[in-house]
Design a binder for these strands. Sequence first.
DNA 1: TAGATTGTTAATCGATTAACAATC
DNA 2: TAGATTGTTAATCGATTAACAATC
Lengths: 208, 208
Amino acid sequence: MQKHFISPAVIRRLPRYYRYLSELLEEGIERISSSELSRKMNVTASQIRQDLNNFGGFGQQGYGYNVQYLYTEIGKILGLDQQYHLIIIGAGNLGRALANYKKFEDRGFKIKGIFDSDLSLCGQPVAHLTIQHVNQLERFIKEENISIAALTLPKEQAEDMAKQLVDYGIQGIWNFAHTDLQLVKNVLVENVHLSESLMRLSYRLTNR
Amino acid sequence: MQKHFISPAVIRRLPRYYRYLSELLEEGIERISSSELSRKMNVTASQIRQDLNNFGGFGQQGYGYNVQYLYTEIGKILGLDQQYHLIIIGAGNLGRALANYKKFEDRGFKIKGIFDSDLSLCGQPVAHLTIQHVNQLERFIKEENISIAALTLPKEQAEDMAKQLVDYGIQGIWNFAHTDLQLVKNVLVENVHLSESLMRLSYRLTNR
DNA sequence: TAGATTGTTAATCGATTAACAATC
DNA sequence: TAGATTGTTAATCGATTAACAATC
């Protein structure tokens, strides 16, 4: 999509801009300048302008940015204008919590299935879904055109499962297992390591 | 604890070192050099040595690092050698998932209670706990010496609740609500914005 | 036009990597 | 002692901030 290299630091910030713009929209605010936004977000106006200009000139001198337009454009950049089909592997508490989270659909992420290796769970309902056995994965991923798998299973099973998922054609893995996936193949991994987040809080509490 | 300023980038990496060292311990490995560890973790040996030397000289020339010793020391730096009492505010699916997560206790985080503003949920069991009403918070936080609150409630309620928690003496907030908390007071906030994480994955999928 | 604010270049700051002397 | 590897300084790289000309 973009021509030149975008730094990871910029990408990390994009969803936050998107969130603030959505709040401005809700408040009915039509335009905003980089300096107003910078005050709200606690960043520099310079950073906002630099970040946005990686993707094009969305603003207008003397005016600022049109909130609706900028919101839509950042949405496109993030790929939120398209539908991604998603499955959850691991029907434990966290997997079920994700399945129940309704907001994902609004952003174009459609949760199509939830799977577990425990046969006794299979057939149970979770949100609008029914838990399926992992031996259905290959067929399901292909038939339902699944591109993202959320991995909410014990770390011991994560690596093997991830390898299988890649073979079955999964493009992106949202990894909640407490391990780094060492995957050779061309698959994107986004890690959510909750325990690391809690440890960072603990560090700051301890070393105040 | 430390005398000099530690950069956020270093702090972000500490829990990951801790995790790898714990795996090495499980494998019964006694010593490791920065270059061996760098290969396992996909970082440079130089970075590892720089990072660790922020906190002291944990290694030995010609030998490397003693795994058990380094693990223990990083644990202390992260504050994992002490007990932090934690409560969960919001007994939805995510709050319940956190309450059921057993591993936190191993790392010194003791989940002492779960609260909700919905009276019809109060009295229900979740893991080893019983859901309490939020009007019990002030008493509970003081009596049970709670220092951390995990916020797993709708973003509309997050800010007000956070302010109350700070008044009641909470030191750190582990924020899962989809909003940034604007708190004046001296409280530490660690954000877990799951939807932002998913958007970053979506960005990378879209702009491959 | 005058005022405002962007887009963009240049300057600064911080983080990472390289190199090597110190030392176990 | 010789070999290995740290701790640390210096060099490089990347990210952030400042400044300002362009322009709406």
